[in-house]
Design a binder for these strands. Sequence first.
DNA 1: CGAGTTCTTGACAGTGATCAAGCGACGTGG
DNA 2: CCACGTCGCTTGATCACTGTCAAGAACTCG
Lengths: 238, 238
Amino acid sequence: MNSETFKVACSNCNLREICMPVGLNSEELDKLEEIVEKRRRVKQGELLFSSGDTFTSLYAIRTGFFKTCISSEDGREQVTGFQMAGEIIGMDGIVTDRHSCNAVALEDAEVCMMPFASIEDLSREFPVLQRHVHKMMSREIVRENGVMMLLGNMRAEERVAAFLLNLVQRLHARGYSQTELTLRMTREEIGSYLGLKLETVSRTFSKFSEDGIIEIKQRYVRILDPEALKKIFNPQTY
Amino acid sequence: MNSETFKVACSNCNLREICMPVGLNSEELDKLEEIVEKRRRVKQGELLFSSGDTFTSLYAIRTGFFKTCISSEDGREQVTGFQMAGEIIGMDGIVTDRHSCNAVALEDAEVCMMPFASIEDLSREFPVLQRHVHKMMSREIVRENGVMMLLGNMRAEERVAAFLLNLVQRLHARGYSQTELTLRMTREEIGSYLGLKLETVSRTFSKFSEDGIIEIKQRYVRILDPEALKKIFNPQTY
DNA sequence: CGAGTTCTTGACAGTGATCAAGCGACGTGG
DNA sequence: CCACGTCGCTTGATCACTGTCAAGAACTCG
């Protein structure tokens, strides 16, 4: 195991607004720090958890970037999401007490471990935390509904446009640029998430670039014309 | 509003094993009946709730069959799931206090309304109920992961095979035949769920029929060779 | 610096979409 | 009870989008 552990303090974490402690008062925050028992570092390429692992904790991402993916029995891989700082992963494990997907760090990362039993104990005590947990899970359900719309109804250009807009919007909410980003995943991983082959992703990026909508060099992306992207994502509205 | 309301008793409901009250003792069951405050009938074609409606309750399906679907702004529809007796719908509404999808009855149905505030109150009191609610939501997340695999990686025949196997398996768990079923949805709705056009669904059914794998006449389906279906769904394993 | 990975681009192929026509089932009203 | 209209389903012909295969370029990292 290449991961180390750390002591923790939610109260001075700069992700307070995005992560768990939304709306908690200081007493509640103290309690929350009890459940975030330790941190764990995960190096790029390493697994935070994998399919079949016993489920014990949810993980709040402090730094870094993850993908979650499932494999079918015949070896096909489907990326089910990309997660960044402030987001919570591991909720797939609750149903069966075992994780059903792999979580892979796409860059060196640090996560806060939150034993689920403690979350349940504490959320029985604090309705505001209980509500927060329910919202987190519901948000994930709704996100996946949106992905189903992408995969079921959209063409390649629409999927890629939606992907870029979603990424940059989430990064912006974390204080990063609204127009520039660095992709942390390969074309193949993007393709897997979007139900496309890596060549199609690459070609679509090239086309957007030729059309002056984005500037792209390897993992670096600059969005030159966000309105054009939105128009591609949501054609009829315009 | 074409729906009526009824008094309720979980304790003698024949869906006890599948629905909410799993593992509750009789005292807890009494409490549960308090939260299932009333039933509601929904006629075929009617909406149980629609996108934008204020979220107040989860609904346990007592009888009948539903689809849930979302529409993009430009009018494209994506069916996100089909739900049958014993299953719970409405969890999409928790995040934003508004539903983000439509729930349409595909046959006359009856649902038990469970105000979410009561569920939260009671699950603070009863850890077993709390756990059950968490599992329900996690199960939905995992289900959607599986749909993403279908939509992202599978070919038309594999999707249709997976769809039939999933339906018949859920029906069997409810005491119905393992080999016969009546589809409650149109080819178009199946196609929307599977990311295919209705013609492709129809052609795939016809092909399965020619190959002697199923017998199909309109909405009636008989599975003649379940192993062949499984082989199509999961090619490499064989 | 070099090996391996990732990305781009081209040529071609195939799956499923689109368009179109006709059939069959079902429900309603005469 | 039958006729008719509507909706859903099937099937054929053709097309387009994306996948596949291949080669080479660019980048990364030890």
